[in-house]
Amino acid sequence: MSDLRLQDFSYFPGCSLATTAGESNRSMMQAARILGLNLIELQDWNCCGSSSAQTMCKNLSLAMAARNLSLAPPGRPLVAMCPRCLHYLRSTQKCLKSDPETREALEEKWGRPIYTDLEIIHFMEVLSRYGLDRLKANARRSLKGLRYVPYYGCTLFRPPRLAKERYFQGEMENILGALGAQAVPDALSYRCCGSFLSATDPEIVTPLVQEIIGSAAAAKADCLVTACAMCQLNLEMRNTSRAKIPIFHFSEILALALGAEDYEEWFVRHLVDPRLVIRKLAQAA
């Protein structure tokens, strides 16, 4: 029984995974199901506030993230896949911890307690706790021969305000490496994808994306694997060069290795056709 409960997590999808990056959500759920991890969606969650609330009003940004924290039951960690959501949830928790007055005011407003000791972790952290050996034992497809660029984007480990928290550099290589894939180290793994400038000023972002994709092509990678749904979209959407390298969500590659069958449904949503890479994998197997 206690072991069962260890596998329960609250899950915060966030706006991207709930909509534009639905394929990331679906594949992650598949992977979790196969591994016996129970991701329980946070009831009636709202947007974490994102860069826009952060830019326009500090109180609003804090309250948006705090409402999600007030919805999370104690006793099981809160998991996020989107690095930005994770960042805002964590920094808000830190804020409320040091500012009990604000926390109490919000608790009173909503009539719900906010547990400031709640663990907030990334999905990769769930996997590393699960154990790479157990993960390997669950693999159904080999990723052998897949040369990928681990693309972390900017938010997963960089925010200085969370410098003392756990960070994730190298985690993707550990996990996908255990499943047989080969990381290509000499590409722009940490260069920012352009974030919301992709929507407002594409002419700034396009050359940056070109550089990132170009570095992956020069390193002879089959694909890039991203930790962040927005990065995935920006890298696909703003790539105007001839090198059309597919961009995968981390969860897609994971679920693929674990034997998920509904991958067609995820891949039709990609702007860059990933089938060539999948065929190559199938042939290698």
């Binding site: 860069s51 900017c154 200085p160 920012c192 919301f196 400038l197």
Partner: peptide, 11 residues
């Protein structure tokens, strides 16, 4: 306004 907060500078 152009700064998206990627923290490259900070790091």
């Amino acid at each position: 306004w152009v700064c998206v907060g990627c923290h490259t500078c900070s790091s």
